[in-house]
């Protein structure tokens, strides 16, 4: 067996947004799935708030405060939007109506869709629903896997606005796996470039020319 991730070392501060940038197959999704406990690491440790999470199950990590929006959305297609949002409150179903209402204030586009089946929504609406469902769990850390994949620009802007608002108001930390440099630069405090399972470079989005520097890590190089 060949290790996918090697020597990964990342500290995430409260209220910080860290991007992970890299070409396809470099281990970005594997990194998030390992953090979430879907793929147990062979070695190394994962700590959150001073507690070791390495041996915790996925649901224990979710209960500890990790929220995950996986690639492909993974919404419950046979459940309505309202039921999907209620599922987001599974850690504590008490007062779920209040929680769902709070999340719908952040993503009002979903209000009109509450009785629709998740599977009948457009890709962008499904992405908003996946994010809203994650927010219903009141996470302290959000792991977002390629949220702009196949999504129209207006919804990408909506997601950026919501995440910025959350960062400002509730000190949520975010790990954002993405290949869309514009999206990453709109949100991230720093961006880790990953190549063959190793963080090879740290990019500061505020630095001049950083976008050009980032392009070489996703195989786009200006001639």
């Amino acid at each position: 067996m060949i290790p996918v991730l090697r020597g990964i070392d990342l500290n995430l501060a409260a209220n910080e947004c860290v991007g992970v940038l890299g070409r396809n197959g470099m281990g970005k999704t594997t990194f998030l799935r390992a953090l979430m406990g879907e793929l147990p690491p062979w070695s190394g440790t994962i700590e959150y708030g001073g507690s070791a999470l390495t041996k915790s199950t996925t649901q224990e990590r979710a209960k500890a405060g990790l929220g995950y929006v996986p690639q492909g959305k993974h919404i419950f297609s046979n459940l309505t939007v309202a039921e999907n949002l209620k599922m987001g409150c599974i850690k504590d179903f008490r007062n779920f109506e209040t929680t769902v209402d709070e999340v719908l204030e952040l993503l009002p586009r979903l209000k009109e869709l509450l009785e629709r089946k998740g599977g009948s929504l457009s890709g962008g609406e499904q992405q908003l629903l996946a994010l809203a469902r994650c927010l219903c769990g009141k996470p302290n850390v959000i792991l977002l896997d390629e949220p702009t994949e196949g999504i129209q620009p207006s919804i990408c802007d909506e997601i950026v606005d919501v995440l910025r608002l959350l960062k400002e108001k509730s000190r949520i930390s975010i790990i954002l796996v993405e290949q869309d440099i514009e999206f990453l630069w709109a949100l991230c405090d720093r961006v880790m470039a990953i190549d063959k399972g190793v963080f090879v470079h740290v990019i500061d989005p505020k630095e001049a020319g950083s976008e050009e520097e980032a392009k070489k890590f996703i195989g786009i190089e200006d001639n």
Partner: peptide
């Protein structure tokens, strides 16, 4: 019903 569709996602949400 959610578990029937996607048990991993239910675990990711804390179920």
């Amino acid at each position: 019903r959610a578990t029937t569709q996607d048990a991993n996602m239910v675990a990711n949400l804390g179920g």
